[in-house]
Amino acid sequence: RQGFVPAAYVKKLDSGTGKELVLALYDYQEKSPREVTMKKGDILTLLNSTNKDWWKVEVN
């Protein structure tokens, strides 16, 4: 499932696989259909980080 999360809630990881991955630093509950819920410690695939406030991710 793809959607947006606050950029301040995730940290980029060095995956070494060519995929950009991020680590969820905090729990986040989606507040609109365009967002996704994540739990602290989740590893997500980063799809787009051009917006400084909201990053598009895919929940694996």
Rank of each mutant, 00 (worst) to 15 (best):
R1V: 08
R1I: 07
R1K: 11
R1M: 07
R1P: 05
R1Q: 07
Q2R: 15
Q2T: 11
Q2E: 08
Q2D: 05
Q2Y: 08
Q2A: 11
G3R: 03
G3I: 04
G3S: 02
F4R: 03
F4Q: 03
F4T: 02
F4L: 09
F4A: 02
V5A: 03
V5G: 01
V5K: 01
V5W: 00
P6D: 01
P6E: 01
P6S: 02
P6W: 04
A7I: 03
A7N: 02
A7S: 13
A7T: 06
A7Q: 05
A8N: 13
A8W: 09
A8R: 15
A8T: 11
A8P: 08
Y9L: 12
Y9C: 10
Y9D: 02
Y9M: 11
Y9H: 06
Y9E: 01
Y9R: 05
Y9F: 13
V10K: 00
V10W: 02
V10E: 01
K11T: 12
K11F: 09
K11Q: 13
K11M: 15
K12H: 08
K12Q: 08
K12M: 10
K12S: 06
L13A: 04
L13H: 05
L13N: 02
L13W: 08
L13R: 03
D14M: 12
D14K: 12
D14C: 15
D14I: 12
S15L: 14
S15Q: 11
S15P: 09
G16I: 14
G16P: 15
G16V: 14
G16N: 14
G16L: 13
G16R: 10
T17M: 13
T17S: 13
T17G: 15
G18I: 10
G18N: 12
G18Y: 10
K19M: 11
K19V: 14
K19W: 09
K19E: 11
K19F: 10
E20A: 14
E20Q: 15
E20G: 10
E20S: 14
E20K: 13
L21R: 11
L21E: 08
L21C: 10
L21G: 03
L21V: 08
L21F: 12
V22L: 09
V22G: 13
V22M: 04
V22S: 02
L23G: 03
L23H: 04
L23V: 14
L23T: 07
L23P: 00
L23R: 09
A24V: 08
A24F: 02
A24M: 03
A24P: 00
A24N: 00
A24Q: 00
A24C: 11
A24L: 02
L25F: 03
L25A: 03
Y26T: 08
Y26F: 13
Y26K: 14
Y26N: 09
Y26E: 10
Y26M: 13
Y26R: 15
Y26A: 12
Y26Q: 13
Y26I: 09
Y26C: 14
D27Y: 05
D27V: 03
D27R: 03
Y28N: 01
Y28Q: 01
Y28G: 00
Y28T: 00
Q29R: 11
Q29F: 13
Q29L: 12
Q29H: 13
E30K: 14
E30G: 14
E30V: 07
E30Y: 05
E30N: 08
K31Q: 14
K31T: 12
K31M: 11
K31E: 07
K31H: 09
K31A: 10
K31Y: 05
S32F: 06
S32A: 08
S32K: 07
S32M: 07
S32T: 12
P33H: 10
P33Q: 08
P33V: 09
P33K: 10
R34I: 11
R34T: 12
R34Q: 12
E35N: 05
E35I: 04
E35S: 07
E35P: 04
V36K: 02
V36N: 02
V36A: 06
T37N: 07
T37L: 03
T37W: 04
M38A: 02
M38S: 00
M38T: 03
M38D: 00
K39G: 05
K39M: 09
K39F: 10
K39R: 13
K40C: 07
K40L: 05
K40Q: 10
K40A: 13
K40H: 05
G41M: 03
G41N: 06
G41C: 07
G41D: 05
G41Y: 05
G41W: 06
D42N: 06
D42W: 11
D42P: 01
D42V: 04
I43Y: 05
I43V: 12
I43L: 08
I43H: 04
I43F: 05
L44S: 02
L44Y: 11
L44R: 00
L44E: 00
L44D: 00
L44K: 01
L44H: 03
T45N: 08
L46E: 00
L46G: 01
L46V: 06
L46W: 02
L46S: 00
L47E: 02
L47C: 06
L47Y: 03
L47Q: 03
N48G: 06
N48Y: 06
N48D: 15
S49Q: 10
S49K: 09
S49A: 13
S49V: 07
S49R: 09
T50M: 11
T50S: 15
T50Y: 09
T50V: 09
T50W: 08
T50D: 15
T50N: 12
T50G: 09
T50C: 11
N51Y: 08
N51I: 06
N51K: 06
N51D: 14
K52N: 11
K52Q: 11
K52W: 07
K52V: 12
D53Q: 13
D53G: 08
D53E: 12
W54N: 02
W54G: 00
W54L: 03
W55P: 01
W55T: 03
W55Q: 01
W55C: 02
W55N: 01
K56E: 13
K56D: 03
K56M: 14
K56A: 08
K56H: 10
K56I: 13
K56P: 01
V57F: 01
V57Q: 00
V57S: 00
V57D: 01
V57T: 00
E58C: 09
E58T: 06
E58N: 04
E58D: 04
E58F: 05
E58Y: 06
E58I: 08
E58P: 00
V59F: 09
V59S: 13
V59P: 07
V59Y: 10
V59D: 06
V59R: 12
V59K: 13
N60P: 15
N60L: 14
N60S: 13
N60Q: 13
